[in-house]
């Protein structure tokens, strides 16, 4: 039986807005197995992105238990959490979020600057990642010189260049046309299928959900039971 990558028990997240408390997540229980392609769906404001951020270690829960890759990441310091993210998690955002002054190559190389790899080793990793997303011929292009789909593929290359166990994608097709969205989803499916990456994806798009192995729905901060 596959081991758990994400184990969540009774997790909650409460945002303080002036004198009001807003519960973004309540009593969340979730178990994501290694090699799963989990799709989180739900209406706007249901807490999908908040849950994804907490699992990826860029936000912290207010209560409950959270273990990702066996680590209680809620207790890690900022610096330890940063290192943990660099090693274990790859991010893909809706708006691509590439650094505009860096080329495709330099954007993908960015997470590797924090490792002990030599320049030659970094180059090998970067070229491999860009080749995997079909952009080996665009290494010197700046984000403004790429189409939206190409930018998102560079972002995926950046997410996988450190060979993380977990790839999190927040609405990765939200800003793309249908053709580019299919390209991006195909790449994510290949990463899951061929490279055994565990993928957590938040989306509104029902077509995107078809690529997932597991689909869960969130509503008003609560995870709905698994549909059979």
């Amino acid at each position: 039986m596959a081991k758990s990558v994400v184990e969540i028990k009774n997790l909650s997240k409460i945002f303080q807005r002036d004198s009001f408390s807003v519960a973004a997540l309540e009593s969340i229980d979730l178990d994501v197995k290694e090699g799963e392609f989990l799709c989180l769906m739900g209406p706007s404001g249901s807490g999908k992105t908040t849950l994804l951020n907490i699992i990826a270690g860029i936000d912290r829960p207010t209560g409950g238990e959270l273990h990702v890759l066996g680590e209680d990441i809620a207790t890690l310091s900022e610096d330890a959490l940063a290192t943990w993210r660099n090693v274990h998690v790859g991010f893909v955002f809706q708006t691509f979020n590439l650094i505009p002054v860096l080329t495709a190559y330099e954007n993908v190389e960015l997470p590797l600057l924090l490792t002990k790899l030599s320049a030659a080793e970094r180059k090998e990793h970067v070229l491999m990642a860009l080749k995997l997303v079909g952009l080996a011929d665009r290494i010197d292009h700046y984000p403004r010189q790429l189409s939206g789909g190409q930018e998102q593929r560079v972002a995926i290359a950046r997410a996988i260049v450190t060979d993380p166990t977990l790839v999190v994608a927040d609405e990765p097709t939200g800003d793309l046309d249908a053709y580019s969205a299919d390209e991006v989803l195909d790449i994510l499916s290949r990463l899951n299928r061929d490279f055994k990456k565990t993928i957590l994806m938040v989306t509104h798009d029902p077509r995107a959900a078809h690529h997932a192995t597991v689909v869960r729905h969130l509503e008003k901060g609560q995870l709905l039971p698994v549909e059979n």
């Binding site: 990826a56 860029i58 610096d79 940063a82 660099n86 991010f91 979020n97 650094i99 924090l114 950046r158």
Partner: peptide, 16 residues
């Protein structure tokens, strides 16, 4: 600000 956040999500520490 958002670029700094992206870099931090990639593993850059506040000190970086």
């Amino acid at each position: 600000i958002s670029e700094a956040a992206i870099m931090r999500s990639l593993g850059f520490r506040p000190a970086h």
